[in-house]
Structure formats: C-alpha cells, structure tokens
C-alpha cells in the first residue's frame, strides 16, 4: 500500500529536513522551498497533508492556504500551518486544520499527522 502524500512547504532547509524526517515513516514526503513552486505542484497533485510555512519566497503560505481552500479538488487536503508569527497564526487559524507555533515539537507534529491520516 502506498503511503499518502505530504507536501512540506518550508524555505528553511533544516526545518524542511526535520519535517521530512518526522513524517517520512507515515507519508510519502515531498519538500518544496518556494511558494510559487508549491502552487504549481498543487495543480498536479492532491496531497493528503500540507505542512505549510507562512513566510515564503514566491507566494506566501496564506496565499497557498487560500488556494487550497478555494479549489474543490483539494477539499480533502489537510493543512498544518507552522509559523513563528503568532499574529499570522491567529489570523489563519480558522482556515487551517491545525496551527503550530514554531518551534514545532516533533512529537506533537507526528501525533497530529498520524491523527489526520
């Protein structure tokens, strides 16, 4: 059985690697460091989970979140928002499935991701 797809959209390579390592047991992971590339990729795939940073080059995490929520094709896609900015986190908490404040606890992320499968 193939693992569900998790898109990790994070421009910080270390964090991207940490998220990947955390989720790779449960998901097929794909990491993208640029917002506009993420949008392009979302036209092609329907990921089960998107771990989304907010401050991104190309397009912001908020734009990507709006895009996902506006596209009926992606209505099963779960979004975990990971941000260092509380204000942004509060603004987007209704649209995202889960908002995690950085630094994200690995254990917590894995628990949550597991529950979202």
């Amino acid at each position: 059985m193939t693992k569900p797809l998790a898109l990790i959209v994070e421009d910080d390579p270390q964090l991207s690697q940490i998220f990947t390592l955390t989720l790779c047991e449960l998901f097929e992971t794909e990491s993208i460091t640029d917002g506009s590339l993420a949008l392009t990729r979302l036209l092609e795939v329907v990921p089960h989970l998107v771990v989304l940073d907010i401050n991104l080059p190309g397009a912001s995490g908020a734009q990507i979140l709006h895009f996902i929520r506006a596209d009926a094709r992606l209505n099963t896609t779960r979004v975990i928002l990971a941000t260092a900015n509380i204000r942004q986190a509060e603004d987007l908490q209704d649209e995202a499935d889960i908002v995690l404040l950085k630094p994200v606890s690995i254990g917590q992320l894995r628990d949550l991701a597991e529950r979202l499968i």
């Binding site: 910080d12 270390q14 964090l15 940490i18 998220f19 390592l21 955390t22 990971a82 260092a84 404040l101 950085k102 630094p103 994200v104 606890s105 690995i106 254990g107």
Partner: peptide, 18 residues
C-alpha cells in the same frame, strides 16, 4: 523561533532515534 525549531527538531529526532 526558526533556528530554535532547528535545534529542537534535530534534538528530538535524535531522541526518537531517527
């Protein structure tokens, strides 16, 4: 927060024997 995420994340990965 961002670099802290790195520190904490890798340490936890180590702890989980990743």
């Amino acid at each position: 927060r961002t670099p802290l995420g790195g520190v904490l994340g890798f340490a936890e990965l180590l702890q989980y024997n990743a």
